[in-house]
């Protein structure tokens, strides 16, 4: 078991500007529909805290706006995240956080795909399989320790 942090000194990037929902022009028109788009999904997950550091996934560039693919008509969303280091054992936790957050934020009609960016992780296939296996995710969320950890990471994104 490795003690200490996995990535001791991550590079911190700047946050991107946010969309101001209040002043959106579509607010005046009752009939217009704001489809769920890339930026909106990104807004849901950008503030998730890294399990190791007090920074958001956006600041660590684990997630970017382009890492989200949305198809509203087919109710499908795919998030591709990039762990900060190749052997990061936190990758599954991060993926689980993203999945839980999206499950709680998106309409139930959506199918959610989470995957590690190709070539950025040592055990890429295993991680991808684990994250997209419904039953393993459900089992993970039965574990009170894991749930507590996930909830802690998600708490800033609900503010």
């Amino acid at each position: 078991m490795v003690s200490g942090l996995i990535n001791e000194n991550p590079i911190v990037y700047e946050r991107k500007e946010r969309r101001d929902v209040r002043t959106d022009s579509s607010n005046t028109n009752e009939l217009s529909v704001d489809t769920i788009d890339q930026l909106e999904v990104f807004d849901h997950i950008r503030d998730i805290k890294d399990p190791e550091h007090p920074y958001s996934l956006e600041q660590l560039k684990v997630l970017t706006e382009d890492s989200v693919e949305v198809d509203d008509s087919k109710s499908h969303v795919r998030v591709t995240f990039t762990p900060t280091v190749e052997h990061c054992s936190m990758a599954t936790i991060i993926g689980l956080c993203v999945r839980v957050k999206l499950m709680r934020s998106l309409p139930s009609r959506y199918k959610i795909d989470i995957r590690v960016a190709p070539g950025t992780h040592a055990t890429e296939a295993a991680v991808n399989k684990q994250l997209n296996d419904k039953e393993r995710v459900a089992a993970a969320l039965e574990n009170p320790n894991l749930v507590e950890m996930v909830d802690e990471c998600l708490s800033p994104s609900f503010e």
């Binding site: 929902v21 209040r22 959106d24 579509s26 607010n27 217009s32 529909v33 704001d34 769920i36 909106e40 849901h44 709680r104 934020s105 998106l106 309409p107 139930s108 009609r109 609900f158």
Partner: peptide
């Protein structure tokens, strides 16, 4: 959560 308006969805979350 599936409301047509983004503001409503935000509050719903």
């Amino acid at each position: 959560l599936d409301d047509p308006k983004r503001r409503v969805r935000e509050e719903a979350i």
